[in-house]
Design a binder for these strands. Sequence first.
DNA 1: AATGAATGAGGCTTCATTCAT
DNA 2: CATGAATGAAGCCTCATTCAT
Lengths: 217, 217, 217, 217
Amino acid sequence: MFIHLPKLMSLPQIESVPDRRSQILDAALVCFARRGFHQTSMHDISAEAGISVGLIYRYFENKEAVISAMADRHKKEISQMLDRARQAPTLLESLEILFTAHCCENEPRVISAFVVDLYAEASRNLHLADLVRDVLRTAMDGVTELIARAPETENATHGLSPTELAELIFAVARGMLMFDVLRPQEMTAAERRALQLEVTRKLWRVLFKSEAEPAYA
Amino acid sequence: MFIHLPKLMSLPQIESVPDRRSQILDAALVCFARRGFHQTSMHDISAEAGISVGLIYRYFENKEAVISAMADRHKKEISQMLDRARQAPTLLESLEILFTAHCCENEPRVISAFVVDLYAEASRNLHLADLVRDVLRTAMDGVTELIARAPETENATHGLSPTELAELIFAVARGMLMFDVLRPQEMTAAERRALQLEVTRKLWRVLFKSEAEPAYA
Amino acid sequence: MFIHLPKLMSLPQIESVPDRRSQILDAALVCFARRGFHQTSMHDISAEAGISVGLIYRYFENKEAVISAMADRHKKEISQMLDRARQAPTLLESLEILFTAHCCENEPRVISAFVVDLYAEASRNLHLADLVRDVLRTAMDGVTELIARAPETENATHGLSPTELAELIFAVARGMLMFDVLRPQEMTAAERRALQLEVTRKLWRVLFKSEAEPAYA
Amino acid sequence: MFIHLPKLMSLPQIESVPDRRSQILDAALVCFARRGFHQTSMHDISAEAGISVGLIYRYFENKEAVISAMADRHKKEISQMLDRARQAPTLLESLEILFTAHCCENEPRVISAFVVDLYAEASRNLHLADLVRDVLRTAMDGVTELIARAPETENATHGLSPTELAELIFAVARGMLMFDVLRPQEMTAAERRALQLEVTRKLWRVLFKSEAEPAYA
DNA sequence: AATGAATGAGGCTTCATTCAT
DNA sequence: CATGAATGAAGCCTCATTCAT
C-alpha cells in the first residue's frame, strides 16, 4: 500500500506542468526582444526554451497565440508595476518606478524592444490593439488615482486634471521607451536607469513643483 | 559619334532613376504601414508600385536596402517638418506642427505605424539605430533652438534648459505616436489631429505658461 | 498468496482486451469513413474512442496495423453478409442483401467511403491487396455457389457460368459502392437502400429472367 | 537587325509556358497513381517534374488545387474516351473502348489507382464530388445515347431503358476499375486488357444478345 | 493497464533573390 | 531598362511514435 511512494515524487511536476507555458513565454520574450516577433522562428523559441518545436504547440495553438500570451503577460507586468508604484511613499517615487520598469538587471520583465514591437504589431492586429489599449487605459487610470491622492498635487497642476496629467506622464514614459531601443548595447541597466531617473525628476518638477519653490538638488 | 546612340536613348532615364526609387519607396511605405517590414514581401511592394519584382533590385540591393532608404526618407520628412516648424510664428504653433505631422489626410508622409516599426527595427539593426538616433538628435536640436529663441520661454521654464525641455517634448511626441497606432481605424485624420492639438496645448501650458497666468480656453 | 492481488485485479482485463481492440476499431472506422486513412491521425482515433493515444499502441503496433485490422474486419463483415445472403430464400433476396449491405441505418459496418479507401490503399500496399483480393475471391465464390444452386438460373444464364455471373454481379456491386460515395450527404440510408434495390432487381432481371417472361412490376 | 535571331529561338517557349501546368499535372498523375494523393508530397511532384517545389505554386494555389486540376483532367480524359467510343462502328466496340481505357501501355491517361483515389477523395470533398458526379452523368448520358442508336438493342434489352442499361454498364466499368487496383503488379497492360475485353463481351452478351442466338466465339 | 507529455522528422507554403530574355 | 519564371532555403505546423509515471 505504501510501496508506490515514487508516485509522490512526481508531485513537484504537478506544479511544473503549468510552468511549461511560462518556460515557453520566458524563452519567447528573450527571442522576441532579440529579433522581433516576425524574425523569431518557432524553432528559435524552442531552442531557447530547451524543448522541441512540437511541444510549443501543445501549449499554444500557433505563433500568434504565443504573441497574444506575451501581450497578456505584458498586461500583468504593467499591472504589477502599478501595484509597486501604488505602494511608494511619494508620487515622485511612484513615477520613478513607472519610468524605470525596464531598467532592472536581473528581472527585466518589461523590455523596451519587446514593447515597441508589441505596439507595432498592435497597429495591424485588432485583438492586440484592444489588449494594449486596455493595458494603457488601466495604467493611466492607476496613475490618475495616484495623482489625485498625492498631496504634492494640491498646489499646482497647471490647471490640468489628474487624468490629463496622467496622459502626459504616460506619453513621456512610452516616448522614453522608444528612445531606449536606440541606446547603444554597451549601456548597462544602471546607466539606463540613471537616465530615466533624471527624466523622471525633470518631468515631476515640471508638472508638480510650483514655479516659486526652488528646485531641489 | 553616332555609334553610341543607344546610350543617348537612355538619357531620359537618368532623370527617371530617382523617380523610380521614389515610386518604389512610395509603394514600400504603403506596404510597410499596412503590414510591417517583415510581413511585407518584395512582391507586395512591386505590386503596389505596379512594376516587376526584378526591377526593385535594379534600384535597391536588397530588402534591407529598401528599409534603409525608407529610414533615410523618414529623416528627410522629419527635417522638412522641422523646417515648417521653424517658420511658425509662435512656439505653440511650432509644437503643433511637430505633434500633428502624422495627421495629414493626403500627405501622410509620417505614418505612425511605420515609425514605430522603424524604432522596433532599429533595436536590432545597428545601422538603423545610428540613423534614427541621428534623426532624433537633429530634431531635438532643432526644437532646442526654437525654445531658446522663443520669447514665451523667458518667464518660466521650471529651471530646465532648452535642451532638457526639448527632450521632454520629444518624448511626449514619440509617446503620442505610440498611442496613435492603437487608435481605431475608423478615426479620421481630422479627429487624430484634434486629439494631438489638445495634447500639444496642454504640454505647452505645462511647460511654458507660468502658474500665475490663468489657463485660457 | 495474497501478495499478487494486484495481478488478480487485472484479470477482468483479459476479457477486455478484445473489447479494447473493437472499441478502437469502431472509432477508427468512424474516423476513416469521415476523413480517409491518411487524413486521420492517431489522435483522432483515440479521441473518438475516448482513450489516450498511447493506449492504441498497446493494442496495435502502429497505424498501418490499425488499417490492416480494419481490412480484416472488412473481411468478416463481408463474410457475415454472405452468411445472411446464403440464408435468403431466393437468389433475388440474396442479391438484395449483397447490394444493400452499406445501407443500414444503425449498423453501417460496411461503409462505402471506407471500402473505396481500402481499395485505393490496396493499390499501394501489397499485403492489403492480398487481403482484399482474398475477400473478393471468397465473396465471389459464395455468390457463385448461390447461383449454382438457385432454381432461377436453370432457364437462362446467357451461356455464362455461375462464376462468370458472380464476377459480373460483384463488379456491379463494387461499382455501385463507388457511386455511393458521390451521393449527397443529405440522402438517408433508406433512400440509398431504395436506389440499390432498384439496381439489384434490374440486374437480376437482366441476368436471370429469360426474355420471354414479362417483367413484373 | 538580323543578329538577334536567338530571340526567335525562344518562340517554342511561348508554347512551353502553358505546358508547365501540363508538365506538373503529368508528374502529379505519376505520383498520385504511385502513392495516392495524401502520401504524395509536393516535393515528390516537383522531383518527378524535374522542377523546384516553389514553381508549382506559380501554377497552382496549393496542393488541393493540383488535385482539383487532376480531377478536371480526368473529366477530359473520360470525355475523349467517350468521343472515341462514339466513333466505334458497333456498340460492342464502343464498350470495349470504355472498358479498356485504363489498359494502354504508353498512354495510360486513365489510371485505375488514381480514379479510385479520386472517388475516395470525392467522398470528403464536396467540390470534387460535384465534379466526379458530373463526369459520371456526362459519361452515362453518352453511353445512353450509344445504346439508343445501336441496332443491336432493338431486339432485346430485358425491358430496360437505355438509361438503365447505361447505369448497369457503368457500374460494371467502375467495379472492374476497383478490381484492377488489386491486380498483381507483374500483370502487363496487355493482360489487363485481355481480362477487360473478356468481361466486356460477357456483359454485352448478357445485355444485348437475345437468349435464342448462340453465343459467338 | 493507461495516460499524455515529449520528440523530431517531414509536409505545405512563402519569399528573397537571380537570371535569361 | 524591364519582366517574371525559377530556385531553394526556411518557416509554420502536424503527427506517428515513445516513454516516464
